[in-house]
Design a protein around this nucleic acid. Structure first.
Lengths: 187, 187
DNA sequence: TACAAAACTAATCAAATGATTAGAAACAAA
DNA sequence: TTTGTTTCTAATCATTTGATTAGTTTTGTA
């Protein structure tokens, strides 16, 4: 066993994710990544292949962070109130340290639309599907709505969440809170 | 008076706008613009100065197109129903010819966040302010809500509209309609 | 027809980008 | 110590980018 890597791949990918989150895919260059990650371009290639693959790993890491919020929703049983709590936690997550970075998933959707890379697209749709299932489940918990209404409300909540993510990039906290409160006043 | 321009500036800026709308600012190169507009890079510079200024003119043109929808809302007097009509027209506008391009304003907000060019930012905030005023006015028309509630609902509708713009880039028509219907069921 | 002013074409510039190369440095095993 | 494998550094590659240049063409006026 010869020379060991100076860096920890988990650690450097955390920095890559932060940069992609802040700037988007196309506006993050390998030189910026190299500087931020503290390793040179060759090492990025050696560890991750290329920029696209590095982004994919960054998105996976981001997803795993989001998963913690989602798990809280999974274990909740308060119906619509649990979903509302999730919205507030999500808003805080999307604007941690007043970063105004929004959500990396939603940012990526917005940057690429339907022309997104296939593997990236799968991660995003898996995430959306998981959200949809959890929202639906919680909507069924404490209501007597018919299936069609539940389906409609589920669709609504999924879009409302991505709208919230977008909003955190530019709006102030009051507007954000107004938005969440009004969203859940309907139920 | 010597040679006349071969092209009409109004016409070529329409094509530039379409390209920026589809691809965003950074992912639209001057060569793509040159090809689409049918004039070479030098002529783009001669007519508009540089890429940034061309984008600004494109955004102004986009804004003037949106203004037609807004004027319909201005002349309406049906309160919340008028706002709902506006949402449907906006959704159709953002997805005309099944383009999935969303809204150029919202796309720009998402691409640049708060780091947006100053002049571009002014156009966007003017637009948002106009929306806010019209929403507020229509909310006051047919309701007995207190001022605080109207303010909150106004904030809600502004964010709901940008969320709708984002959604049209990726979601199908059913989900979009569910979203609009549920949004206005609250009132 | 000759001239002048503006618009045109095509080529080119410097800078930035993603990716790769050549060679030096590190280090466990023999 | 020597060897072989791997990581590291720094330089470089070909493209693409926004912008500009040099020189040609067009066209109204004198």
């Amino acid at each position: 066993m010869p020379r060991e890597k100076k860096y920890n791949e988990e650690e450097v990918i955390e920095k890559a994710m932060a940069l992609f989150w802040k700037n988007g895919y196309r506006n993050t260059s390998l030189r910026m990544l190299s500087k931020e990650m503290g390793i040179n371009q060759f090492s990025i290639n050696a560890s991750f292949g290329n920029k696209q693959k590095l982004f994919l790993e960054s998105l996976k890491l981001y997803r795993s962070k989001l998963q913690k919020l989602i798990n809280a929703l999974k274990n909740a049983s308060n119906g619509i109130e649990s979903i509302k709590d999730f919205f507030y936690q999500f808003a805080e997550f999307a604007n941690q340290n007043n970063s105004k970075n929004g959500c990396l998933m939603v940012n990526t959707m917005s940057e690429f639309g339907l022309d997104v890379d296939k593997k990236v697209g799968i991660i995003i749709s898996n995430y959306e599907e998981q959200l949809r299932t959890l929202f639906k489940h919680n909507l069924e918990l404490n209501s007597i709505k018919d299936n069609q209404t539940i389906e409609r409300h589920t669709n609504y909540l999924v879009l409302a969440l991505s709208g919230l993510a977008l909003a955190t990039k530019i709006q102030n906290e009051i507007t954000i809170n107004d938005y969440i409160e009004t969203t859940f006043q309907h139920f």
